[in-house]
């Protein structure tokens, strides 16, 4: 089996390298992409969309369909993690660990024992025992707001600097993942519930697709943001810049929610009970 796999991989890899030989060499000024495509984007981005970052205008405007279906792929990944991994059956565990907060004593409650209610005195901890670490919690509490502000900056400033919806969404999702690691998964789910996150994931894709449909309703082509000029009260060029921002926000929301969904389902093996 290993030999067969090796032969197959060598064959397919060889085919890939053979196919890649036909590409123009890196940075070749005579290649078709450098002759027609890239010069057009570089020369016309400012006059077409008033976005200084060419990558953003290509990503969300000239190649809008591509990015929309990339967002759908991310959405699908989140939904698939839910359908493959999620377990709704609540099995009663053998024993549970609780911490008495004022004294720091750890209690082990066997199956059938009286479980203390979640109050200010008792806190449930994961069965993979993790010592109470004030340093980690305080650091997480201090650093998470800055991560989230930076994520919003990356989304909003994607027109002028590297960044955009994908990166900003991932960074925002990472801040929630950091919260789930620094505190625990149950507390993260209490803050951002499963239904809410799934809804946000669908909402992000809907914002993107809805913008396109709105353009059609304004009697223009799908995802042609210049049709939104009447809505914003600006000229068509600025409207394209604003349209890109709306679409990037949609991408950011969808990616953030998908990352959180993936983490919830993977870290708890679908039980949403005890996490990493």
């Amino acid at each position: 089996m290993r030999i067969t796999g090796l032969i197959l991989i060598l064959l397919l890899g060889g085919l890939l390298i053979y196919g890649a030989l036909d590409f123009p060499i890196w940075g070749d000024p005579q290649s078709p992409a450098s002759n027609h495509l890239s010069p057009y984007y570089i020369e016309h981005t400012m006059t077409d969309t008033s976005v200084p970052n060419v990558v953003t205008s290509v990503l969300a405007d000239y190649r809008g369909y591509d990015t929309m279906f990339e967002t759908v792929v991310i959405f699908t990944a989140g939904i698939v993690s839910f359908f493959l991994l999620r377990i709704f059956k609540k099995a009663v565990p053998e024993s549970r660990l609780y911490r008495h907060i004022p004294t720091g004593v750890t209690l082990r409650i066997e199956k059938g024992g009286k479980v203390p209610d979640e109050s200010n005195h008792f806190e449930r901890i994961d069965s993979v025992w993790i010592p109470y670490d004030l340093v980690i919690r305080t650091t997480c509490r201090m650093i998470i707001p800055f991560i989230q502000i930076f994520a919003l900056y990356v989304i909003a400033h994607g027109h002028h600097s590297p960044g955009g919806g994908f990166q900003g969404g991932v960074i925002f999702g990472a801040s929630v993942v950091l919260f789930a690691i620094g505190f625990n998964l149950r507390q993260a789910i209490k803050q951002l519930g499963e239904k809410f996150v799934t809804f946000m994931c669908a909402l992000g894709v809907s914002i993107y697709a809805g913008t396109g449909i709105f353009c059609v309703l304004m009697k223009s082509k799908y995802l042609d943001y210049s049709a939104l000029a009447a809505l914003f009260g600006t000229d068509p060029v600025t409207a394209r810049s604003h349209g890109i921002l709306i679409v990037e926000i949609g991408v950011g929301i969808a990616v953030m929610a998908a990352m959180i969904m993936l983490y919830y389902n993977l870290a708890s093996a679908g039980k949403h009970d005890e996490g990493l």
Binding site: P162, F166, V170, A174, V177, Y263, L266, A267, L276
Partner: peptide, 26 residues
């Protein structure tokens, strides 16, 4: 390619490592 580098840093080096570690743990 600064945009690609940014994506690679946040997705490849950041969140996917966390997801891999979570999957290995389970």
């Amino acid at each position: 390619a600064v945009d690609v580098a940014f994506t690679e840093a946040s997705v490849g080096a950041g969140i996917s490592t966390v997801l891999f570690v979570a999957a290995v743990l389970r």
